[in-house]
Simulated assay, not measured.
Amino acid sequence: MRLTIITPDKPVFDGDATSVTVPGSGGAFEVLENHAPIVSTLEDGKIIIRTGKSEEIINIIGGVVEVIHNKITVLAEGIKEK
Rank of each mutant, 00 (worst) to 15 (best):
K80Y: 12
V22N: 03
I38H: 01
E55A: 10
L42E: 04
V20D: 09
V20I: 13
E77L: 08
I79P: 07
I61F: 06
T51M: 13
K10S: 14
S25W: 06
I6H: 05
S40G: 05
G45D: 05
V31G: 11
G63K: 04
I61H: 09
T73F: 06
G15Q: 09
E81W: 08
G63S: 09
G52M: 05
T4C: 08
K10I: 12
T4P: 01
K71W: 00
G15E: 02
T21V: 13
K80G: 01
E66T: 08
I58P: 02
E77V: 01
I72T: 04
G15A: 10
P23E: 03
D14L: 05
G45P: 13
I5V: 12
G62L: 11
K53Q: 13
G78H: 01
V65W: 06
I6W: 05
T51Y: 13
E33Y: 06
G15R: 07
T4D: 08
E81S: 11
I48T: 15
L3S: 07
S19A: 04
I57Q: 09
D16R: 14
K71I: 07
D44H: 10
N59D: 11
L42D: 05
V67N: 04
F13A: 10
L42I: 01
A36G: 02
D14G: 03
D16F: 06
G63E: 05
P8R: 12
A76C: 07
H35C: 11
M1F: 08
P23Y: 03
T18I: 04
T7K: 05
H69A: 14
D44K: 14
R50S: 12
L42G: 07
I48W: 01
A36N: 04
V39A: 10
E30M: 10
T4M: 07
D14F: 05
V64L: 14
R2H: 14
K10G: 00
F29I: 14
H69D: 15
I60S: 08
K80V: 13
G63M: 11
P37Y: 12
V22R: 03
M1L: 08
I68C: 05
I57M: 12
I48Y: 02
V65Y: 08
K80P: 02
G63L: 04
P11S: 11
I57D: 10
I6D: 02
S19W: 00
K53F: 11
P11C: 04
N59S: 12
